[in-house]
């Protein structure tokens, strides 16, 4: 394994963590937007209690991924940032507004007009951010930054569905209120089915409009990843139905890993299909090694800190303040 492979692996791991942890935060916002019926307020409360202490730390995985990209693959970073200027700017607006809205509505809870409008902004921005990030990924996969293409837009919709599914599974284990937990249990099952349907959609579109991309999806590694993702989804449904909520988190994490590893594997050895391979985009080997050393040193402080955060707030024990 070369240092470039190692960095690509670190990048994949960071993206998986962002997709699972950050994705759960986005999806929480989507469920906030979709909160309806007599338990709407309690559903929103469960979302807020689950993501409150952790969303800022989860969000740093995105920053880490950006830094990795411009440190280790600066040429590809510049090319991607130029080609995907529009969807990345729109995703950025979503990320900014949802983060701000989340704290604003908490602190303006007793001013109905403000709380309602910032809650609406939180929900819409939580939907927009993963949509445009997914769209950017789809556009990158086309190799021509076609962010308005049917394929890229379908990947955006798929990303929203995955976030909603991950959120439903992750929040489930934290909810004390039995009725609301029942709501999220149903949502976890339904959104897993939605992920299957909306995951088949971009593949079907690619078969018609993106022949190169579709061919890469038929490579053995990609097919295996898709299969693993579907199986992980089935396991999610089984575990959630059996009330094994903490184990279901692992299964949904495996599903996200399969999706992202499948994407990386289908494109390999290209970082941007047809434009940059990893090695063509790489910075000097001294920088890549320095980055890996910095990551290893950083992990020494990061891992125990994250473990403490999740042990205090996400131990799977029902929070008494849901």
């Amino acid at each position: 394994m070369t240092p470039i492979h190692a960095v690509a692996g670190v990048g994949l791991a960071a993206l998986v963590l962002y997709a699972v942890l950050g994705g759960a935060d986005f999806g929480g916002g989507v469920w906030d937007l979709l909160a309806t019926g007599p338990r709407a307020a309690r559903q929103r409360g469960a979302v807020a209690a689950a993501i409150g202490p952790v969303w800022e730390a989860n969000h740093v995985w995105l920053i880490f991924t950006i830094v990795l990209l411009f440190t280790c693959f600066p040429a590809a970073f510049a090319d991607i940032a130029t080609g995907l200027y529009a969807p990345l700017t729109l995703a950025l607006v979503g990320i900014v507004l949802r983060g701000a809205a989340f704290v604003f509505r908490n602190y303006a809870a007793d001013v109905p007009a403000l709380a309602t409008s910032w809650t609406a902004i939180f929900g819409v921005a939580s939907l927009a951010a993963p949509f445009f990030l997914g769209d950017a990924v789809g556009a990158l996969a086309t190799g021509r930054y076609a962010w308005g293409s049917a394929f890229a837009l379908c990947v955006g919709v798929f990303a929203v569905a995955v976030c909603a599914q991950v959120a439903a599974v992750f929040i489930l284990a934290d909810i004390a209120d039995d009725d609301v937990r029942g709501d999220f249990r149903r949502r976890a099952v339904r959104s897993t089915i939605a992920v299957w349907i909306l995951g088949a959609l971009p593949a079907a579109v690619a078969a018609v409009t993106e022949p190169h991309l579709f061919a890469s999806l038929l490579r053995p590694f990609a097919l295996a990843a898709i299969g693993a993702g579907v199986v992980a989804g089935l396991v999610v449904i089984v575990l959630v139905s059996a009330r094994r909520d903490t184990a279901a988190r692992v299964a949904v994490g495996a599903e996200a890993t399969a999706i992202l590893a499948g994407w990386f594997g289908a494109q390999a050895p290209d970082l941007v299909p047809g434009r940059y391979t990893y090695s063509a985009a790489a910075s000097s080997s001294s920088m890549i090694v320095a980055f890996l050393v910095a990551t290893a040193l950083g992990a020494i402080v990061l891992v125990p800190s994250l473990a403490l955060l999740f042990r205090v707030f996400k131990s799977g024990a029902r929070s008494e303040r849901a």
Partner: peptide, 16 residues
């Protein structure tokens, strides 16, 4: 990016 990435990388961990 490939020259000054190190302080940005370490900053990422501090921010974490």
């Amino acid at each position: 990016g490939g020259i000054i990435g190190l302080p940005f990388s370490l900053e990422g961990f501090a921010f974490f």
